[in-house]
Write a protein that binds this DNA or RNA. Structure first.
Length: 279
DNA sequence: AAGCGGCGCAACCGCGTCACA
DNA sequence: ATGTGACGCGGTTGCGCCGCT
């Protein structure tokens, strides 16, 4: 036991990162990579804990990050994956190149949940919600059924009978592809190769040699193919422009069309498009 | 124009897991 | 086999921004 707090209370900074800190961290990681996060702040001259550095890097500074709102296709994909995986954001993020688990989690909590509820889908179970109760006829003494506890782990993954498939999946080390994603064939973009510590390999120890600053060893054309000048907004630090415009949207939206990401939910739930409950 | 409330995002916290001694 | 340390993940919090009154 006695696990020590990762940030010894003494003298380590917390809270928002400054441009200078960002610069130090990025500069260090691009030059040296990271062997272990614990030493990164020390070597980079930061008064932060390694954990904080890792988070900052993976959620914000990584050159391959795609920023901005999730596209409809991405949103749809997130919903499908959530249906299968539950709140396993890192696994979901692994399927969305350039997106972070944190970002997806936030988007889920702030946008998608609401949208699903609005169309009568329980965002936890992905089941059709009970229609709004009719105006209470006072005598209805039966207490409302307890709200399904939210954030209670993954939904009983869809209609799968019994068993925690997540656990099972874990047993199989989940590298087993989740069952084929229905309806996704037309929307999944060609997986962008995953550079530098990107999700699936969030844990990966990508080594970045100085020589490979722009194409870290664990990277791929994704990064190497992207000029630094196309790094994401945080790279404002270095006077770099957004990477956002780099063709990802183009890639996925080849499926084209402005598809309502919830359309199939309307359908699954037996609604016509308009036939939604406004809750 | 100012105040207030809600929303969204970045960051933190704590636990689980894994690797290694 | 066991204990320890590091990392990663998911949940939660805090704060700034923006829109509404």
């Amino acid at each position: 036991m006695g696990r020590q707090p990762c940030c010894d209370k003494v003298g380590l900074k917390k809270g928002p990162w400054t441009a200078e800190e960002d610069q130090k961290l990025v500069g260090f990681l691009l030059t040296h990579g990271h062997c272990c996060w614990r030493v990164v702040p020390k070597l980079a001259g930061l008064l932060r804990c390694g954990k904080s550095c890792r988070l900052r890097w993976t959620n914000y500074l990584r050159p391959d990050l795609k920023r901005g709102l999730l596209s409809d296709d991405e949103e749809r994909l997130v919903i499908e994956l959530h249906k299968q995986l539950g709140n396993r954001w890192s696994k979901i993020a692994a399927r969305l190149p350039g997106r972070t688990d944190n970002e997806i989690k936030n988007h889920w909590n702030t946008h998608i949940k609401k949208k699903l509820r609005k169309i009568g889908i329980d965002p936890v179970t992905h089941q059709v919600l009970e229609p709004p109760r009719p105006p209470p006829c006072e005598q209805d003494a039966t207490p409302p059924p307890p709200e399904p506890p939210e954030q209670q782990g993954p939904p009983p993954p869809q209609e799968q009978q019994g068993g925690d498939i997540m656990r099972e999946a874990d047993g199989n080390e989940e590298e087993e592809e989740p069952s084929p994603l229905i309806e996704l064939h037309e929307m999944t973009a060609p997986p962008r190769p995953r550079p530098l510590g990107a999700a699936e390999g969030a844990t990966s120890t990508c080594s970045v040699s100085p020589a490979s600053v722009l194409s870290p060893s664990c990277s791929s054309s994704a990064v190497s193919g992207v000029d630094v000048t196309e790094w994401p907004e945080p790279m404002y630090l270095f006077g770099m422009d957004g990477i956002m415009d780099v063709g990802w949207d183009g890639l996925i939206s080849d499926a084209g069309v402005d598809v309502d990401p919830f359309a199939h939910y309307y359908h699954d739930a037996g609604f016509d498009d308009q036939d939604v409950w406004i809750i």
